[in-house]
Design a protein around this nucleic acid. Structure first.
Lengths: 188, 188, 188, 188
DNA sequence: CATGAATGAGAATTCATTCAT
DNA sequence: GATGAATGAATTCTCATTCAT
C-alpha cells in the first residue's frame, strides 16, 4: 500500500524512458522523458536520484523482463535441445514484439553509465538461462569455457538474429532457425 | 603555398580521439580531444568538419585497420580451417594489442552518429574477411544464411572472446582457442 | 504550482535588451543581456526560445509602445491638421524621451532576423496612425499612392526629424516644426 | 601603374562584398567574401586592414557611385524642377538596376562599424546633390532647415520609393512619380 | 606578395539538477 | 509531494586575424 500513486508514476517514467531512448539515444534529455511520461521534470528526480540512476534501473528492469519472457513456460524437464529451443523462441519473440525495449537495452548495454552492480544484478536475472545453457553445453565443446562466456555468446547470437528478423521480416522464421542451429552447434 | 594541411596533425587528432573516447565515451568534448592532440580548438574543425565527421572517419579508419590486421599475411591458398584460424589469431592479436582502439570501435559501432555510408565503407573493408568466411561456410550449416549474418556472428564472437582475453589474461590462449572452436563449429 | 513565470523578469530581459542593443548593436551577446537583466544565462531562454525570438518580441513591443505613445490622447474628432500634429508631437516626444528604445528599434527595423509575421503585427499596431494619415491624404497629392507608402514616408520623416532633435537639442522645437511642415505639405 | 594586379583584386573583393553582404548581411564571414572574390582569405587582409576597414571603404565606394549615377548628365542650367527630376530619375534607375548594391548600402548605412569619417566622406560625395537641393528649397518651406536635414529627407524618400518600385515593378513608374511629387512639394 | 592553416576568444544553446512555491 | 522556473557549467562550432610556407 506504500505510495501506490508513486509506483504508477515510476512505471510511467521507465516506460517513457524506453520510448525516448529508443528514438533519441541515451542523450535524450530528462525533461523530454518526463514530459513523455506526463510528469514534471522535477518529479523525475524524486523517483530517480539522477539520470544515471534512472538508466541503471531501466537496464535492470529490461534485462529482468527479457529473462522472464525467455523463461516463461519453460518445461522443467525434457529434452535439452527442445527446452533450449523453447527458450530461444520466447526470447526472440519478446525482442521482436517490443523492438523499442530491445533497442534501448542495446544502448544501455554499451553505456558506461551502467554500474558493475547493475550488470551483476542483471546477470543474476539471467541465471535461469545460464542454468539451461550449463546443462546444454555440459558435453559440448565449450564445456571447459567459463559459463559467462557461453552466456555472452548466446546473447550476442540472439541479438544478431533479432537484427536480421527485424530487418527482413519475411524470412524471420528462417533466421530464427538458423540462429538456433548455430547456437546448438556451438554449445552442444 | 601556405602551410599544407598536415597529415601528421590529422593523425594526431584521430589518435587523440581514440584515447579520449576510450576513456570518456562518445560524449567526450571536442575541446578535450583537441587538447589531447596538442592542437587548437579550432584546428580540429579544419581537419574534420564536425564532431560527427570526426567520428565517422575514425570509425572507418579503425575498421579498416582492424580488417587489415586480420588479413595481414593471410596465405592465399591452403587449408580453410588453418586460414580462418590465422585470421582469427591476427584479429584477436590486434584487438588485445590496442584495447583502446577496440573499445572506441565498440562505442562507434552502436552510435547513431555513424552514417549508413560509413557502415557501408566499413563493410567493404571487411570484404576479405567475408570472402574467407564464405568459403568456410559453403558446406556448413549456415550455407543458406545471408553472408552478412555470418560475418556479424563472427564479429560478435570475436568481440566476446577479446573481452574475456582482456579480462582474464592468464587464460587468454584458452579463450582464443575456445572462441575459434565455437566459430568453426558454427560455420563449417 | 511551482514558481510562476515572472512577468517582471520578462520585462527585465526586454528592457536589458533595449539598453544592450542600443549600445552594442544587434550583435550583443545573449549572456550580456542576461547579466544586464540580473538573470542567468539559461533563464533568458526560458522566457525567449532563441535570440531571434527575443529580438522579434522586442520589435513588436517597441513598435506597439511607440504607436500607443503617438496615439495617446488623440482627439477623436476635430481639425485634421491639428490631430496629425498632435500625433506628430507625441511620437517625437516618445522617441526623444527614450532614445535607447528608438535606437534599438532602428536596428531591429533593418535586421533580417525580424520575421514577416512580426512586421505584420507591428503594422497592425500602427493601424491607428495609418487611419489618420489616410484621412489626411485623402484630398492631397498622394491620394492614389498605396497607404503603406505614405506610412513609410511618415516614419522616415519622423526618424530623420528625431535624429536632428537629438543631435541639436537647442533647436529641437524648430526641427519638430519643420518636420511637421514637410509632412503636411507632402500629404495634404 | 602602381600595382595593377592589386587594383583588380581590390575591386574583386569589393564587388564580392557587395554580393555577399546583400545576401547574408553584415555578418558575412570575410572568408566567404574572399572566396567569392576568388582570392585567399589571407589576401583580403593585405588589401583591407580589417573587416571594418573593408566595410568602410565599401560604404564610401557605393555612396560615391550612387551620387555619380544620380548626377550623371545633369544639365548645368535650366529649370530647377526639371533638373531635380532628372537627378531623381537617375538615382532611382541606379538603385533599381543594382539592387544588391542598394541593399548592401542600406545595411552599411545603419551599421555602427561605419566611422564618422566615412560618413563625412560620403556626404562630400553627395555635395552635388546637396547643391541642387539647396537651390530647389531656397524659396520653399524648408529654406530655414539645415541643408543636411533636407538631404536626409530626400535620401529617405528615395529609399522608400525604391522599395516600392522593387516590390511592385508593374507600377514602378507611378511610384517614381509619386515619390518625386512628394519630394517637390516638400522642398519647393 | 599569395596562400590557407592555425589560433582561441567568443557565440548561442542545452541540460541535469536544485529549490521556491 | 508535485511543479516547473532557475541556474550556470559545458558543448559544438564560427570567425577575424595572424603567420609559416
Amino acid at each position: 500500500m506504500a505510495r501506490p500513486r508513486s509506483a504508477e508514476k515510476q512505471r510511467a517514467i521507465l516506460s517513457a524512458a524506453v520510448r525516448t531512448v529508443a528514438s533519441q539515444g541515451l542523450g535524450a534529455a530528462t525533461a523530454v522523458i518526463a514530459k513523455e511520461a506526463g510528469v514534471s521534470n522535477g518529479s523525475l528526480f524524486t523517483y530517480f536520484g539522477s539520470k544515471a540512476d534512472l538508466l541503471n534501473r531501466l537496464y535492470v528492469e529490461l534485462k529482468t523482463e527479457m529473462a522472464a519472457a525467455a523463461l516463461d513456460g519453460l518445461p522443467a524437464e525434457g529434452d535439452l535441445r527442445e527446452r533450449l529451443c523453447h527458450l530461444w523462441v520466447r526470447w526472440l519473440r519478446w525482442a521482436t514484439t517490443c523492438p523499442e525495449k530491445r533497442r534501448t537495452l542495446a544502448q544501455l548495454d554499451v553505456s558506461d553509465e551502467i554500474t558493475p552492480a547493475s550488470r551483476q544484478t542483471a546477470r543474476q536475472m539471467m541465471a535461469g538461462i545460464a542454468r539451461l545453457l550449463e546443462q546444454s553445453r555440459s558435453n559440448g565443446p565449450l564445456r571447459e569455457a567459463p559459463l559467462e562466456f557461453v552466456v555472452a555468446l548466446m546473447s550476442a547470437l540472439a541479438d544478431i538474429t533479432i537484427d536480421f528478423m527485424l530487418r527482413d521480416p519475411v524470412h524471420a522464421d528462417q533466421h530464427r532457425q538458423a540462429g538456433f542451429e548455430a547456437l546448438w552447434r556451438m554449445v552442444a
